[in-house]
Design a protein around this nucleic acid. Structure first.
Length: 168
DNA sequence: GGAACGATTGAT
DNA sequence: TCAATCGTTCCT
């Protein structure tokens, strides 16, 4: 689960769609080496990598590789669990399926910006928590919105959670 | 200093 | 299917 502490309110969602980005991966921001933008990707695992794209949106990753490696997992969709009223206000939309079904939507609904780039995800105001939830069968497909490395099947989601994932 | 592009989204 | 929008990267 991803839990956001926002001005005394708890916003939470279950991670139901991810994409992997490795260093030896032409689709990855880390492919051409370390820059000011992607520095967090090369830091220790367990931290956030937040970037700004298309002039409008932020996207959240969890850094996964050892220090110096440049690997991360993009969080593409969450099933809303708590704080749906605040998420709706931040999104300007109320349909639960339209609150967190995309990487840009997640950051808008949870008020995640570059201020959280590099934030360790084991503490407020943004935490990754484990519960006993069993995702069941995991489906893998090619990644969304990329050209280089488009053949690698590194997008993942539980088949039972298809209703919460981003549009195909 | 400048141009091209993008791990997207919402409207058409 | 298409435009919006601007930070980042790469080239001159």
């Amino acid at each position: 689960m991803l839990v956001r502490d926002l001005e005394g309110t708890l916003l939470a969602g279950r991670i139901v769609e991810t994409e992997a980005y490795l260093q030896d991966d032409p689709a990855s921001h880390s492919f051409r080496g370390r820059t000011a933008r992607n520095a967090a990707m090369f830091g220790p695992a367990g931290r956030a990598y937040v970037y700004f794209t298309y002039g409008n949106h932020f996207c959240l990753n969890m850094v996964t590789g050892p220090e110096g490696r440049g690997e991360a997992v993009l969080i593409r969709a969450l099933e809303p669990l708590a704080g749906l009223d605040v998420m709706s206000r931040l999104r300007g939309r109320s349909a639960p399926r339209d609150l967190l079904s995309g990487p840009g939507k997640i950051c808008q609904a949870l008020a995640i910006t570059r201020e959280l780039d590099g934030h360790p995800l084991d503490r407020p105001p943004l935490r990754l928590l484990m519960d006993g939830w069993d995702p069941g069968e995991i489906v893998s497909t090619v990644r969304v919105g990329i050209r280089q490395g488009a053949d690698r099947p590194w997008r993942f989601y539980p088949s039972r959670c298809r209703q919460w994932v981003s549009r195909p």
